[in-house]
Design a protein around this nucleic acid. Structure first.
Length: 608
RNA sequence: CGGGGUGUAGCGUAGCCCGGUAUCGCGCUUGGUUUGGGACCAAGAGAUCGUCAGUUCGAAUCUGGCCACCCCGACCA
């Protein structure tokens, strides 16, 4: 972190240095190495009227002067440190401190302290990707593990994933699929059978070459790979399971009576990525992969489309995430597929995210693995296939689509906790009185099928809990204290809008379900409005570049359908064809790049 | 694989130029006062300074090798 980020000297900086030279804290400042600049200073009367000094280098603060007569707070930001919006707010006030030392209130300081004490996350405006990483960590969703590129999904994060699994799994079952499990390892010869598929994943495969370790004679207590335990044939750790599954299907399919096969598996896969980001791209990730086999082309195509709609349905109704459905261009197609369908979502920073794919495999895998069946007419025919999947990447989509600077915002249908109840109490007796009321409420809410948490820990203050559950995205919070006890009320707060209102204790149970529905709806509407706002129709290349550079988001533009044009646009703008929308009306036009005729607009965007 | 950077307590770090086993904060523990939006005060625990070797009476600090990680490219979604 220590570093080389250069930034322009602020006008305020000059004031400060001058100020310091005139006395004050110049001596303290002088103790620090010259290579660090003092770039911010704030004078205010902090609550306890003590002096806090930020270490120039580490941005840590500590008390310099405990004298209550010196109500001075000095905030110093070092040269080259990561900036925050909060810090920027201080800059804004730099014109003031010297003229009115007591004029600034601690309100501006407290967020700064909180931020640097690790209690806050980076704001979206300041650094979107840092915000994302902070959020994932602070909301207790996941963390980096000691294994490069692999993450630990923490209990809270996994609970959300489980909710997704439940929703999807039910939808798969409802469309006639059953779950099964196939091995993690795929023999290399089997893996390479479908050439395009193998080629597409070859560069990111982990390979098992040995099956035994032994103690290292050269280093006591250390192990080494036993060179004598080399596998006859290497095993590929599955990056996807078409190979192993189709080689199995071959054994299962003889007659048209054996079809269709509609199988899904929940599994982990490994793709050795160069650069990883929590949830969005990790070397190992969790997903589901559906693999179906059909007697006819039409049936397989219908399955592919059906599952695309299942995904879109899930995204919209569970994740509150509107998506565009479409087909991939040839260059973006899944290796080994004849056609790839996808759903594309818009993130708050204007970048697109592919949230799910469904592939029509044609007879490619039937060819590769020689999977044939005898039809009703007694003819030997090749099987048609599909595969479709969504992964823990959906977690990334969920986070980046909805959350704010205070943390995660979860749609009620995926929230592990629907309602958290925070008691406000001074002593045990008061807590007991509150608990009595709350216990009845909890029972009532649970009877209504809601997941409720009563956080009666006495080790944390209410304010801390408020912030914590906001960070975790719990949709509804109820707070109940002595005042409420007296009035028979409870404070009800919703996470999506931060609205709070006081309602009658007796009414609250009946209010929650409708409120959750409203939150779910509101989140979808908000995301939809944003997505629509971030979708721009353009009719020239100039306009397209301008929109991509200034506004971002999706761009609907005419394309001549050639890979060359697609590649050129990608090269020049970094934007790719996200999909050829399914529901777009035909519209004659000319390609924004080449001027060649085009029959419909396609969706471009910079993407994750 | 190219260019740059960094390894010191669970986390973030100071110290390194100019050698004398280590700074500060968060967090943690204990006690007290607190509790309607991230409490305060006090006391305490916690580090073989990435690793191996060299120089030296003495190495976090100087020298060399190795390892790991991060950032920017390249690759990939």
């Amino acid at each position: 972190m220590r570093g080389s980020n250069q930034r322009p000297v602020l006008a305020a900086e000059i004031h400060i240095v001058r100020f310091l030279r005139q006395g004050g804290y110049a001596t303290h400042y002088a103790n620090y190495p010259k290579r660090f600049h003092m770039v911010g200073l704030l004078v205010c009367n902090y609550k306890n009227a003590k002096t806090v000094f930020f270490d120039l280098i580490t941005l840590q603060f500590y008390t310099l002067n405990r004298s209550k007569s010196s109500p001075l707070v000095v905030v110093v930001l070092p040269h080259g440190k990561r900036w925050s919006l909060r810090a920027a707010r201080i800059e804004f006030h730099l014109d003031y401190p010297f003229s009115r030392p007591n004029g600034l209130c601690p309100l501006y300081l407290r967020p700064v302290l909180a931020h640097f004490m690790g209690k806050e996350i980076t704001s979206r405006a300041e650094d979107y990707s840092q915000w994302y990483l902070d959020l994932v960590k602070k909301a207790d969703l996941a963390e980096n593990s000691d294994v490069r590129g692999c993450m630990v999904i923490k209990p809270y994060g996994y609970s959300v994933w489980e909710k997704m699994q439940q929703g999807l799994d039910q939808m798969f079952k409802d469309t006639g699929h059953t779950n099964a499990y196939f091995p993690l390892f795929v023999p290399k010869s089997m893996f390479e059978a479908e050439e395009k598929n193998a080629e597409g994943f070859a560069k990111e495969c982990a390979i098992v070459t040995h099956y035994r370790l032994k103690s290292d004679p050269a280093q006591k207590g250390k192990l080494m790979v036993d060179p004598e335990a080399r596998l006859e044939e290497e095993l590929v750790v599955r990056p996807t399971s078409e190979a192993i599954i189709w080689s199995t299907y071959k054994k299962w399919i003889q007659s048209y009576r054996d079809l269709p096969i509609l199988i899904n598996q929940w599994a982990n896969v490994v793709r050795w990525e160069m650069r990883t980001r929590l949830f969005l791209r990790t070397a190992e990730f969790l997903w589901q992969e559906g693999h179906t086999a059909h007697a006819t082309r039409a049936e397989a195509v219908a399955e592919t489309e059906q599952m695309l709609h299942v995904y879109a349905d899930f995204a919209e109704n569970f994740m509150a995430l509107p998506v565009y459905k479409g087909r991939k261009s040839e260059s973006e197609r899944f290796p080994g597929a004849v056609d790839t369908y996808c759903i594309e979502a818009m993130m708050q920073d204007g970048k697109a995210l592919q949230a799910g794919t469904s592939h029509f495999l044609g007879q490619n895998f039937a060819d590769a693995f020689d999977v044939q069946f005898t039809s009703k007419e007694g003819k030997l025919e090749k099987v048609w296939g599909t595969s479709w999947g969504v992964s823990t990447r959906l977690m990334g989509a969920l986070i980046m689509a909805h959350s704010d600077d205070d943390g995660l915002i979860l749609p009620p249908k995926l929230a592990p906790i629907h309602v958290v109840i925070v008691p406000i109490f001074k002593n045990e007796e008061e807590l007991a009185r509150i608990s009595e009321k709350v216990n009845g409420l909890v029972k009532d809410l649970r009877a209504r099928g809601l997941s409720v948490k009563f956080d009666n820990r006495d080790t944390h203050k209410p304010g801390f809990k408020f912030a914590e559950y906001e960070m975790r995205g719990v949709p509804v919070r109820l707070a109940i204290g002595p005042r409420d006890l007296e009035n028979g009320t409870v404070e009800m707060a919703r996470r999506d809008t931060k609205e709070k209102k006081v309602v009658k204790l007796g009414d609250v149970a009946a209010l929650i379900r409708p409120l959750l529905d409203e939150i779910q709806q509101n989140m979808y509407q908000r995301a939809l409005n944003f997505r629509n706002e971030m979708t721009t129709r353009v009719d020239s290349y100039e306009q397209m570049k301008h929109v991509l550079d200034t506004k971002g988001g999706f761009v609907l533009a005419h394309w001549d359908g050639t890979a060359q044009t697609e590649a050129a646009i990608k090269e020049e703008t970094k934007a790719t064809i996200r999909c050829i929308p399914l529901d777009a009306s035909e519209e004659k036009g000319v390609c924004v790049y080449s001027g060649q005729p085009s029959v419909q607009r396609v969706l471009f965007a910079r993407a994750y």
